[in-house]
Design a protein around this nucleic acid. Structure first.
Length: 480
DNA sequence: TGAAATGTTGGGGCG
DNA sequence: ACGCCCCAACATTTC
């Protein structure tokens, strides 16, 4: 009688299309499903992520119980915890999905070197990304630094395939190892409980992920290519947190889009555009895998000497949505309330922080890390660096988003602005994008007192833009 | 996966 | 008829 095997769940909190779990079940041995809360090896979860993780673990445990398994929860350094569970249960093999954070390779190697001398084989699987970052190379043999060639290479190397079905049973060993009670991890906010908006917005877990994908395919896929830029409608998939925690795999999402029955031409267009976004996700993880310093250090090293400002007052105004620019403030308040922000608005608020306020992108990255339910080290770092101009294939520093134009262009009726800034709701569609330019009488009629009910702009667009461009030019001349 | 400044063109009003 | 100007529309370049 051989001992059990361990499936280590990390960012793959699902049963279907989970290669590591499928391989563990295929051994025919009992399977110990283990999740380790490891605040020692990895960067600790942000607040919003902890809320999501709690509910996702509840859902995964429920799904496992429905097919004869159970989820064992432990806390500590992953290598120590796994070694302990393996020793006390007579485990013969460990199955896990690879991760690509800077610490991941070390951790996976440490698991190998600790467990294999004790007779526990370690097998790593994919499933978190569409592509294998080690397999994707340019013609010269180096790693990609530009998105478009990477995108083409991924589409060529990884055609859409059908996901693997969930196992019907996950046989648990007769003697389950001890695990923590999830509530003792205190992942949910207590005093104060700020999670109300999150609860209203999200259903963490695999079932919630597939419901979300279904409703997206029904309601928004055909218009995705243009609708994805309109923050006032549900034009995006909003799958990001589900993908981050692996409640749904990118292959599952892609297959649902690409193999949809009775596809119309616009369905194919929308599917291709979503697929492109999934490859952006792969690209961010690819960059992080090959450049582990991406979360802290500019990809273009010369940016280390860029003269960023240390401005805690402006940073706080940005965080709280008190900049005086309606689109920026609406975005930051959507983030605070729901743990998520529309992608178009993310670009605008990020550009505002690093250009108009000249605050380092790392400060924005840290805030997003704490407040986003989809906080993801790879996406967060790669995208902040992209906006700041110091990333791979980045927008140049002088590309400054105009928060007023973006507002007029993508939210012309002020639908998004009114949803998140009710204090401006009485302004007209024309005026709501720039309340500081509204005549005093009309402001009064709309019940607005600038500086009281809604802030004055903390910097004008023209001055902020000019300051950023001047700093950029002076820095470049000084560097050369 | 910009925006603003600058340059070019062409239609139409008008002396 | 012609030249001149204005300006919108579009293209290019510059930040």
């Amino acid at each position: 009688m051989s001992g059990p095997v361990i499936t280590l769940f990390r960012r793959d909190l699902r049963l279907a299309d989970n290669p590591a779990l499928a391989a563990a079940v295929a051994t025919g041995q009992p399977v110990i499903c283990l999740f380790v809360l490891d605040d020692e090896t990895a960067r600790p979860f942000g607040g919003a992520s902890r809320w999501w993780l709690h509910h996702s673990l509840v859902d995964l445990d429920r799904a496992l119980r429905a097919c004869g398994g159970a989820l064992i929860l432990r806390r500590g350094a992953t290598v120590d915890v796994v070694a302990d569970v393996a020793r006390t249960t007579g485990t013969t093999a460990l199955y896990l999905a690879r991760r690509y954070e800077p610490w991941a390779a070390d951790q996976e190697n440490a698991l190998k070197s600790r467990l294999e001398p004790e007779g526990v084989s370690v097998r790593r699987f994919g499933g978190t990304l569409l592509s294998d970052p080690d397999a994707m190379r340019t013609g010269q043999g180096g790693p990609f630094k530009v998105f478009t060639p990477f995108y083409r290479a991924v589409l060529k190397a990884v055609p859409p395939t059908q996901p693997v079905l969930a196992p019907t049973t996950v046989p648990a060993p007769a003697d389950l190892p001890d695990g923590d009670d999830l509530d003792t991890w205190a992942l949910l906010p207590r005093t104060p409980d700020w999670a109300g908006g999150l609860c209203e917005t999200w259903t963490p877990g695999a079932a919630g992920a597939h419901d979300r994908l279904d409703s997206f395919v029904d309601a928004a896929l055909n218009t995705y290519e243009t609708g994805r830029d309109v923050p006032g409608i549900d034009g995006t998939s909003a799958l990001s947190p589900h993908l981050h925690f692996g409640e749904i795999s990118p292959r599952q999402a892609r297959a649902r889009l690409c193999f949809a029955a009775d596809r119309q031409p616009e369905t194919a267009t929308g599917a291709a555009a979503v697929e492109r976004q999934l490859v952006w996700r792969d690209f961010a993880h690819y960059l992080l895998h090959h450049w582990p310093t991406l979360p802290d250090t500019p990809f273009r090293p010369e940016y280390a000497s860029f003269p960023w400002y240390d401005d805690p007052v402006a940073l706080k105004a940005w965080q709280r949505g008190h900049t005086g620019f309606p689109l920026v403030d609406a975005g930051m308040r959507q983030l605070w309330h729901t743990g998520w922000m529309h992608n178009r608005v993310r670009m605008v608020v990020a550009s505002f922080l690093v250009k108009h306020l000249m605050i380092p992108w790392q400060a924005g990255e840290a805030w997003f890390w704490d407040t986003l339910v989809d906080a993801d080290l790879a996406n967060n770092a790669a995208n902040w660096q992209w906006v700041a101009g110091c990333g791979a294939d980045a927008a140049p520093y002088f590309r400054v988003f105009n928060p007023i134009l973006q507002s007029q262009k993508f939210d012309p009726r002020g639908v998004y602005l009114r949803r998140w800034l009710p204090e401006l709701a009485a302004l007209s569609d024309k005026q709501i994008h720039r309340p500081w330019a509204v005549p005093p009488l009309e402001l009064a009629e709309a019940g607005i007192t600038l500086g009281k009910t809604y802030p004055e702009p903390i910097v004008t667009h023209e001055a902020g833009r000019a300051r950023a461009l001047a700093a950029f030019q002076a820095w470049r001349e000084g560097a050369s």
